[in-house]
């Protein structure tokens, strides 16, 4: 007769695993780390003076946020919800208006084909905020501007690749980024009208 192995008492196993479970519940947090990714400009070397880059007025979209979180686009009081459309209009300049950035026509190789695309090469969106501006208001503006670029890129990807921008591989994304380069400049905060 085979020797019988005595049964191991596993009743405390549940307690042990409960303990582990509770430990993990306490030490971890549910929130995922996500955020609005941005890139800061490189610092100016100390021996070099800060130069004001001369940008043609038509190529510039000035977005100002004051201390009361009010938004001003090109000198007009605007609502944040309208900023995205405004930025898209500015970046595209479909009607070749002379108060919007200069339109260039260039050949891009997209999806293996050479496409002639009109785009505004030199546009700059300048965001200026007050020292007392609320962070949420600032981030909303940044968010809308990034959203404008994302929507344009998405449309471009749909048009030439028949795919969503996020589904493309990195190289193709870079090609589209060339058509719609993100140009959001941030000035140092100043005190605007208190």
């Amino acid at each position: 007769m085979a020797k019988k192995v005595p049964q191991i008492n596993a009743s405390s196993m549940a307690d042990i695993s409960f303990l582990l479970l509770i430990f993990f519940l306490v030490t971890t947090s549910m929130d995922v780390n996500q955020g609005l990714a941005r890139r800061l400009p490189a610092p100016i070397p100390p021996d070099q003076k800060a130069e004001d880059k001369d940008i043609n007025k038509r190529n510039l979209l000035v977005v100002k946020i004051n201390s009361a979180n009010q938004l001003m686009v090109q000198g007009e009081l605007t609502d944040v919800k309208k900023l995205r459309e405004r930025a898209k209009e500015f970046i595209l300049n479909e009607n070749n208006a002379d108060y919007y950035p200069k339109v260039f026509e260039e050949d891009f190789v997209l999806n293996g084909k050479t496409e002639r695309i009109k785009y505004t090469k030199d546009h700059v969106i300048s965001v200026q905020n007050d020292v007392d501006t609320q962070y949420q208001a600032y981030l909303e503006v940044q968010n809308e501007l990034v959203a404008a670029y994302n929507e344009l890129r998405e449309a471009c990807a749909k048009k030439y690749y028949h795919k969503s921008y996020n589904e493309l591989d990195e190289e193709d994304q870079k090609l589209i980024q060339k058509v719609y380069p993100q140009k959001i400049s941030e000035a140092e905060p100043k005190n605007y009208g208190n």
């Binding site: 955020g35 609005l36 890139r39 800061l40 490189a42």
Partner: peptide, 20 residues
């Protein structure tokens, strides 16, 4: 936030993410 950003620029930490 602007002060922090300036400080990050000086330290060459240019890739940032605003948690949201």
């Amino acid at each position: 936030i602007a002060d922090i950003k300036q400080e990050l620029r000086r330290a060459y930490a240019l890739k940032i993410s605003y948690a949201a």
